[in-house]
Amino acid sequence: MSDTQYTYAVARIRARENSLLNPGAVEQLMTCRDADQCIQMLTERGWGDSDTPADGEALLQREQEKVWELMRELAPDYSIFDVFSLPMLYHNLKAAIKDVCALNDMPHIFYEGVSPSEQDMMAMVRARDFSPLDSHMAEAASRATEELLHTKDGQLCDIIIDKAMLEAVQQAGAACKERVIRTYADTYVAVTDIKIAVRCLKTGKSREFMRQALAPCALLNVEQMADTVLRGGEALNEYLSRSGFASCVQALEQSMSAFECWCDDTMLDALRPEKYHAFSAGPLVAYVLAKLNEIKTVRMILTGKANSLPDDIIRERVRKTYV
């Protein structure tokens, strides 16, 4: 009966999917006159709790917490969601290394709720003892610390840790028996590699830089992609079209905001078929990603409204909805 362990969880998620914002609801948010009206509308739709302050950031923060609380309650094996916390974990490592090595006092740059904690991470960097971390992360941490101390090059430190994070996501996906996590990991690494390639193209980075930054990936040949970046935008577009990312080329031709949207939409599209599996973790993972995307969309709208941005600029940044 092990194939039915997600039956209850999937049914609850199916019922919850109705409360996700559909295109009509996003349009309603867009027509709100200001951020306060948006917040009121979201509160009426059940966002936040009764004690959540009527403040955009607090509302978004609470919604994000509610997603993970729900998954902790529902998932028979919560460890499948570890892959989602890897970017935050590696971000905290990066922040700790920069904080200790650059001797800066930069509060509030750490994600909370990630293990090891901020204090433990800082203590590891100060002692240069990364043994509590897994060997792959420890090696990246040690290398990034040494490079930052010797070269004072923050970007080099960033790419060492970011590449290690992508490799960790790839490994976590490959090791997971749930197909949805493998799909998520492969797509996440591919989309991030494309983002890196596009930024390298815009800033004219060298092959050596790309070699250090791009992580090997199941959906792309990163060596070939680096070659095309050196040959220019046309070559990169042609390579992406050939590799099954033609929609990315269209987004890039539109604008960088459209490209950023494409990155999030592609993640959701890759997991969309998983939502039809009634007895797997697929609908749970797809729901998490959809909800996180939705929170991102609402953040865009709230920020846009708070800064009185024109609707078309906000609309360009609105992600696809799941329902």
Binding site: M1, T4, T7, Y8, A9, V10, A11, R12, I13, R14, A15, R16, N18, A278
Partner: peptide, 21 residues
């Protein structure tokens, strides 16, 4: 018993979120 049990798990999941169903 197995079939009703499996369907019951799904039914419980839905009723948890929406008792009207």
């Amino acid at each position: 018993a197995c079939g009703v049990g499996i369907a019951g798990q799904a039914a419980s999941g839905v009723v948890t979120e929406d008792p009207s169903k």
